[in-house]
Amino acid sequence: MKLTIDPKLLADTVAWAARALPTRPPIPVLAGLMLAAHDDQLDVSAFDYDMSMRATIPADVAEPGLIVLPGRVLTEIAKALPTTSYVEITADNREAGIRCGRSDYTLPTLPADDYPTLPEPPDPVGSINADQLAAAVAQVAAAAGKDDTLPMLTGVRIDADGGQLTLAATDRYRIAVRDLTWAPNGAPFGHLIPARHLHDITKGLGHGDVQIGVGDGLAAFTTGSRHTTVRLLDDQFIDYRKRISYEPAITATVDAATLAAAIKRVGLVADRTTAIRLAFDREQVLVRAGGADIGRGSETVECALTGDPIEIAFQSQYLLDALGAIDGTAHIGMDGARKPALFRSGDDSYRCLVMSLRVS
């Protein structure tokens, strides 16, 4: 292999593909990035059996070839290369040379024959703005569980029905749901994608539209010349629509950012698992936390209440995640101090059902 390439383009592409490098590779070669040079372009790929990433970028290819280089080392080298001159990469079966300006590196190659075949992305079934998708995933992924022994709880459910795309996640203590509009070109579907992978994928989509494909146990996300696939989880999931579709007896309307800031300040006298108490009356909510042994904090925030005054308590991080996903006005629906509360955005596109805490 022999080629020259723009250093910034190489660094950006390698850093993007490195998102798929496994922390503990099941086989040594998967710690590498695969580089395939052909037809005046370079393909950069990474794979960990659950997720694959492949990008194609222009290059001046003098000798085509395929090599696998240590991924994390290559990423650091590419990031550090000067941008004043082009990068020259030459390689044989044993090692690769990377030269840019006065910088010169030699890396051992990994056995390319041992690298597994990357899955082919399924055909697109619709498209959506990448920024909107990334924001929606961030809103719901916080509610996904972390316990891998319960795979259903570690995923984000994506349901497509006509022009509406719905994302949902739950860890049993809360359910977060976000509705989006998109442009479908396939049949309705519902699939469960690992939340951690989906969050990583959508953070690196960039701007513009992303094509989404599903099929053969995979979901695919394509933007320009970058393709990502991720293996789907079992489709079993809770009936989240029924649980968030009701009208509570009590509704508090409050600025989400103002209430979140008050919770953070009051929470300085408590740890992440300590209950935050919210006492709602007609014109304000009293935020309280702490106790005699650790100190106490309180603050009032303006709000409007429909229904009877109520005092209810929540785990602080669950409160902050729900309020942090809402821009502007938040509507908090409650049916009692020991029942879940429904947090809704002003346009009702985001809903999060949060379990309350029983406190004395």
Rank of each mutant, 00 (worst) to 15 (best):
H227A: 08
L259A: 14
L259H: 15
R226C: 08
T253H: 06
A219P: 01
V230M: 10
L233P: 06
T251E: 04
F221K: 03
G215S: 04
K242E: 13
V214R: 02
D239G: 12
I244Y: 04
Y240W: 15
G224Q: 07
R243H: 02
G217N: 05
F221I: 01
A257S: 15
G224H: 07
A257P: 14
T223F: 10
F221S: 00
A220S: 14
A257L: 15
E247R: 02
S225Q: 11
A257Y: 13
A249V: 02
T228D: 15
D216Q: 06
Q236L: 12
R243A: 06
R231C: 01
A260Q: 07
G213S: 10
A219L: 07
D255F: 03
Y246W: 07
R226F: 09
V230L: 08
T251P: 00
R241C: 03
G224P: 08
G215Y: 03
I244D: 04
D234H: 06
V230N: 09
V230H: 11
Q236C: 08
D255M: 10
R241E: 10
T228N: 14
A220T: 04
L233G: 11
G217M: 04
T222H: 10
S245I: 03
G213D: 08
A220Y: 07
F237H: 12
D255H: 09
T251C: 04
V214G: 05
F237V: 10
F237L: 10
R243M: 08
I244S: 01
T223D: 08
I238R: 05
T229P: 02
T229Q: 05
D239T: 13
A260I: 09
D235T: 11
H227C: 03
D255G: 09
A257M: 15
L233I: 12
L232D: 03
A257E: 15
G213T: 06
V254W: 09
L259W: 14
S245D: 12
F221V: 01
D239W: 12
Y240I: 11
F237D: 05
S245Y: 01
H227V: 05
L259G: 14
G224R: 07
T228A: 14
R231L: 02
R231E: 00
A249F: 00
T228C: 15
G215M: 07
R231D: 01
G215C: 04
S225Y: 02
A252K: 11
R231H: 00
F237K: 08
